[in-house]
Computed example of a mutant assay.
Amino acid sequence: MNERTDSRTDPRAGPRIDAGAGRAAATRSRHPARALFWRLFAINGLVFTAGTFVLALSPATVSSPVLLTEIPVLIVGLAVIITANALLIRKSLAPLDALTTLMRRVDLLRAGDRLTDSGNGDLAQLIGTFNEMLERLEAERSASSAYALAAQEGERQRIARELHDEIGQSLTVALLSLKRVVDRAPEELREELRSAQETVRASLDEVRQVARRLRPGVLEDLGLHSALSALSSDFAEASGIAITREVDPGLPALSGEVELVLYRIAQEGLTNVARHSHARHVELSLRQEEGRLTLRIADDGRGGVRREGAGIRGMRERALLIGARLTVDSPPGGGTDVRLVVPPHAVKES
C-alpha cells in the first residue's frame, strides 16, 4: 500500500522548509540593495493601496468629464499620498545621509569615528559593513605606521651613532690638534687659531646636540622624568622661551614604547612652539588622572592653527601606536594647547 507524505504533517519536511527560508533570509541579508528595493516597493504599494481604499470608501465621486468642484478633492488626495510616500521613504533612507557625512569627515588618524545603527533593518548591514571597513583600515594604518616609525627610530639611532662616533670623534681630534698648534704657534697667529678652535668646539657641541635629539640616550639610561627635564632645558636654552615643567613624581612604570611616544610628542610639540607660535612662555606637564596619563604642551603664542602640518600628523600617528588620543586646541590669539591622553590599558602599573 502506497502512502503519500503530506509536507504539512511529515516532521521530516519541516527542516527542509526552515532551511530554505534560512537560505532566502541569508540571500536577502547579502543583498542590501535588493532588500531596500523591496522596502521602497512595499512603502509605495501600501501608500497607494491605502489611498485607493480611502477614495473607494469615501463619499467623494469623480465624474466624467471631471467637474471643477471635484478637482480640489483630487488635488488634496494626491498631495496626501505624495506627502505620506515622501515621509516614509525619507525616514527609510535617512541613515544614508549620516553615512555620507561620515565618509566625508572620516580620518584614519582619528580612530573611533563610527556610525551607530539607527534601527533601519535594511541599511543595518550596510552601516555594519562600513564600520568594519573602517576598523580594518585603521588597523592596517596603525600597523603600517608602527613599521614606518620603527624604521624611522632605527635610522635616527644609526645617524646619531655616526654623528657621535665618526663626526664627533673627528672634530674632537681636530680640536686637540688645534690646541697643540696654538701652543706652538707664533703670537701673531694665535688669535686666529683660537678663533678656529672655538668654531670647531661650537661645531662639536652642535653635533652632540643633534645626536642627542636623534637618540635620547637619557631616556634609555635615566627614564622619562630625566629625559623631559633635559628636553625642557635644551628647549629653553636654544629658543629663549621660558618653560614651566611639571611631571607627576608618582607616575607608574611605563613600557619603553609608551615612554618613547610621550618623549617624541613632547619633543615635536616644543619644536612647533619654537618654530611657529611666537610665544613667550610654554607649559609642559605630565600627570596621571584616574588611571590615564595626560601630556600637555600649552603656549601663550598667536595660535590659529587651521591646517595640520606634517609635525602634528606625525604626533597623531605616534599616538595611534599606543591607542592614545591627541587633541590640538588653537584659537586665534589664544595660544595652542596640545594634549595627549593615554588610556589606562596602555599604562603598565608598577
Rank of each mutant, 00 (worst) to 15 (best):
M1C: 10
D6R: 01
D6V: 03
S7Y: 07
R8A: 09
P11H: 01
R12H: 05
G14T: 11
R16P: 02
I17N: 05
G22C: 06
A26M: 15
A33F: 04
R34N: 07
F37A: 14
F37D: 08
F37N: 08
L46D: 03
T49S: 14
V54M: 06
P59K: 10
T61H: 13
S64I: 14
V66I: 15
V66K: 02
L67R: 15
L67Q: 14
T69Y: 03
I71G: 03
P72Q: 08
I75E: 09
V76L: 15
A79K: 05
T83G: 06
A84P: 05
L87W: 07
D97Y: 11
D97F: 10
A98Y: 04
T100I: 13
T101K: 11
R104A: 10
L109I: 04
A111W: 00
D113K: 04
R114L: 11
R114W: 04
R114Y: 02
T116G: 13
N120H: 07
D122W: 00
L123Y: 10
I127T: 12
G128T: 01
M133C: 12
E135A: 01
E135P: 00
L137E: 00
R141P: 02
S145F: 04
Y147S: 13
A148E: 06
L149P: 04
A150Q: 13
A151D: 15
E153A: 09
E153N: 04
G154K: 01
Q157E: 06
Q157K: 11
Q157T: 14
I159A: 11
A160I: 11
A160Q: 01
G168W: 08
V173L: 14
A174I: 13
L176H: 15
S177L: 11
L178N: 12
V181D: 02
R184C: 08
R184G: 05
P186K: 00
E187Y: 03
R190F: 08
E192T: 10
S195D: 08
Q197R: 11
E198Y: 03
T199I: 09
V200N: 00
A202W: 02
A202S: 07
D205Y: 05
D205V: 07
D205C: 02
E206G: 04
G217H: 10
G223C: 13
L224F: 15
L224A: 10
A227E: 00
F235K: 00
A236P: 11
S239M: 10
R245G: 05
V247I: 15
D248R: 01
G250P: 07
L251A: 00
A253F: 10
L254A: 12
E259S: 15
L260K: 00
V261P: 03
Y263T: 05
I265N: 04
T271H: 09
N272T: 15
H276S: 11
S277C: 06
H278G: 08
V282G: 02
L284D: 03
L284H: 05
E290Q: 12
G291S: 10
R292E: 13
R292C: 14
T294E: 03
A298E: 03
D299G: 09
R302P: 05
G303T: 11
R306I: 04
G314S: 07
M315Q: 06
L326H: 00
V328H: 01
D329H: 13
D329G: 02
S330F: 11
S330H: 06
P331K: 06
P331A: 09
T336R: 04
V342F: 09
V342C: 08
P344L: 13
V347K: 00
E349M: 10
